[in-house]
Amino acid sequence: MRRINARKITKAVKTLFIEANTVLGKDVMEALQKALSTEESDTGRQVLQKMIENADIARREKIPICQDTGLAVVFVELGQDVRVTGGPLQEAIEEGVRQAYQDGYLRKSVCDPLTRANTNDNAPSILHMDIVPGNQLRIIAMPKGGGSENMSAARMLTPAAGIEGIKKFVLETVEAAGANPCPPIIVGVGIGGSLEQACILAKKALLRPLDGEHNKDERLARMEDELLKRINALGIGPGGLGGRVTALAVSAEMMPCHIASLPVAVNLQCHVARHKEVII
């Protein structure tokens, strides 16, 4: 049994959220550069240039890339041979979120759903925890903006709808979103499982690096390719001001589902696609 102190976890979570909010991933920067070289619209290119310049300023000056520093989504893979000491694991994570948003000058964007009163510390986080083999602890911090999350959708399709029904739903969702989710976007698609599992798969799909890798399942790889081409034919473009690059990538994840169902979730991610991870 390997022991990991809760304080170490808090510190790691704090660092991850501050870094994720100020330093855009190399893969996202490269995807934006690539978009700049393929975009045909002058306005679209100007918008992409500003996005790249913005990420450069944020990294250099250690300030948030976007004012919406997000809901704190956390994925944890806890090795079953790890024992957390010095306090509960969940509390250690929440404390890391609180410290990151307070000490990192990140915006606290969490509130009571009905009164809309701000919790003033950006807690609670949205915590997804998996128990895995081994003696390590993997933490992924994903600050998720409200604008792109609001444009996301889940639908319980019929088995008869099939893969064409899935593609139609993804396209409809992106088209209805228009300029709202801050394009160029990344489109996470979750297929199968249950209602909530499809949504979790869609969110996990957004963690895939933007290096052109497709799902290993040939059927999904083809679907990702085709959807990206069709999404980029919608004309929405960077900032929604028209152009060829509406999405940087489509990533799909899948698992078996009930014989009666075909759950599909589409989780949209803005061009400030933030996530950072650490293995303790």
């Binding site: 996005m51 310049e53 913005n54 300023i57 976007c66 604008g147 801050c182 900032g239």
Partner: peptide, 13 residues
């Protein structure tokens, strides 16, 4: 008017 979303470090200037 539309402003470009997500370029908030630049806009702060």
């Amino acid at each position: 008017f539309g402003a470009i979303g997500g370029i908030a470090a630049l806009t702060a200037g």
